[in-house]
Each structure stands twice: as C-alpha cells, then as structure tokens.
Design a protein around this nucleic acid. Structure first.
Ligand code: SF4
Ligand code: SF4
Lengths: 133, 133
DNA sequence: TACATTACAGACATTAAGAGTCCTTAATAT
DNA sequence: ATATTAAGGACTCTTAATGTCTGTAATGTA
C-alpha cells in the first residue's frame, strides 16, 4: 500500500515547472534528465497531468510543457488525483447498506484528502526558492 | 493504490470474533466459510493478527482463535497495521533533508491514521448488534 | 516545401506485489 | 494413539505498476 512512483515523479515535475520563469516551456527530455528517468515513461505521466489541466503542452519544435494558468490553485490532491485516479483506498465490492466499516475507512481517507487539498504546490515552490537564498 | 483484500478480511474477522460470546474459540474453517474464502489464505492473515496480539490462538483439537484481552482497545489502525505493515504511503527513497514534499504527504497520512486510531472495533461491533435488534 | 523537433498513442515486455494453493510440522484434547 | 487444529514454507497464479519501442501528428525553422 504505497503511492506509486509516478505520483512522486509528477509532484517533482510540477514543482520544477512552477519554478520555471515566465512563459517558457520545458521539454520532456530536460525534465527526465533532472529526475534521472526515462523520457518515454515520464511522457506518459505528463500526458496525464496535461489531461487533468494541470499543465499545458504544445507539440512541435520549440514545444514542451509549462504550468497551467491555474498555477496558484493547484493542490497536492490535484496531482495525486491525476496520477492515481479517483479510486478509493478501501473499496469493498459488496457495499452493504450503511456499512459501518466503510464509513470509518472513507472518513479516514477524507481526512487525508482534506490535508492534501489544502496544501498548494505553489507554497512548496516558494519555500524551495527562499531556502536556496 | 488500495488497501489489500487481506485488510478487508481481517477487519471482518475481527468483528466476528468480537461478537463471539464469552471465551469461546472459532476455527479458521468456520471463519473462512462465513466470508467465502479459502481457509489456508485466511489462516495466514489470522497468524498476522495473532502476532500483533490482536487475537489469541490455541492449536490442537478444540483450538482456534478468540479475541485478545485488549478487546476494548483495538482500533482500526491496529488491524491495518497488522496486515499492511508499517510502511509509509509516500516513501521517497532519497530523503533530502527537510524535504517539503514528504512533510506534506506525511502529515496527510497522519491525519488519516488519527481517524483510524480513534475508531475502535468494539464500537462497530456494538452498533452491528443494536442494528440487528 | 522539406526537415528537425516535439508531444501523443498504442502495443509490448518486464518487474513486483498481492492473492491463493499445497504440503509438512507442531501442539493439544479426547 | 488419533483426530484436530494452528503455523510455516515453498510454490503458483494474477494483477498492477513500471518501463520500452515504434509510429503518428503537430509545430517551428530554413
Ligand atoms: S459490511 Fe461493509 S465492508 Fe463488510 S462486506 Fe458489507 S459492505 Fe463490505
Ligand atoms: S525533495 Fe523530497 S521527495 Fe523529492 S527527492 Fe528529495 S527527499 Fe525525495
């Protein structure tokens, strides 16, 4: 029971893109090198992020990825949702009416999600910058 | 990213054992039938629960499993911990000092665990009983 | 227009973990 | 002694994550 590596890569990539100045794009090549992983694999993750509207992609020469216009609203939960999908941590296939076990598990997951939703990536990016100084 | 079926089975089994009257034991055979799953597989899960001190096992004829003496203190988290192990949901292998990403992820997981720790199985068992009436 | 560059998509291979089975051993009651 | 039960190890099967390869479409540049 662990978050996938893809989520880790996605989070790092998002922070990288946030720190990129102005309207400049980065290619998957460059992004993959920074994280020491295969460009083709990262490409799939980036496509997911793009479909979720968290980043914007432009094909063709001088193309690449840049952070979405919603830059200041993107939460950890948004990224995780994009990579992990929207499945529940606990999902009993039976679904008895008013199941007490599910209630507890769902509530617990909600507590986690609430935190992940309240934390914005932009905060991490800003802190990272001020640390470097 | 889902909790394993084993956790589901474990939770159900624990509730069953809690509803058992007095000091009586149940065999893995009976417990497996109730949940429609293989006795040998459930046996492995029960062994984990026993090692975690959540249930007590007695081998030999007329043996079986019964709820531990800590019956009234056992939380959802205890059961999950026994079956899933103590690994973190988010575990970056690198561990940069004061990592901001990990901080957020860890905190979120803590929020979930807090809920799971506060919910005791005995409550579920009691509610299940009063519903039946 | 031709060409280089880049994202995108599908098929495929590899790996790791979960789920489940089978068989043997040890402990206990009758 | 024998039947019954839990525990443990080795094994297979299934599934999902991880990763690669190849081709296609879109875009800028010369
Ligand atoms: S009681 Fe809840 S968790 Fe258990 S089988 Fe029914 S729906 Fe699933
Ligand atoms: S910054 Fe944090 S999550 Fe990223 S590589 Fe370092 S330790 Fe891992």
């Amino acid at each position: 029971m662990r978050y996938s590596n893809a989520t880790n890569y996605a989070l790092h990539t998002m922070v990288h893109l946030m720190l990129q100045p102005g309207d400049s794009s980065m290619g998957v090549q460059e992004l993959a090198e920074m994280q020491q992983l295969s460009p083709t694999y990262l490409s799939k993750i980036l496509t997911k992020l793009a479909k979720a509207g968290l980043i914007e992609s432009t094909p063709g020469a001088k193309g690449g990825y840049k952070i979405s216009r919603k830059k200041h609203e993107i939460s950890f939960l948004d990224v995780i949702h994009a990579t992990e999908g929207d499945t529940s941590l606990f999902d009993c296939s039976i679904h008895h009416e008013g199941c007490l076990i599910e209630n507890v598990m769902r509530q617990a997951e909600e507590n986690m999600k609430a935190e992940l939703k309240s934390k914005l990536l932009i905060h991490i990016a800003n802190e990272a910058v001020s640390k470097q100084k």
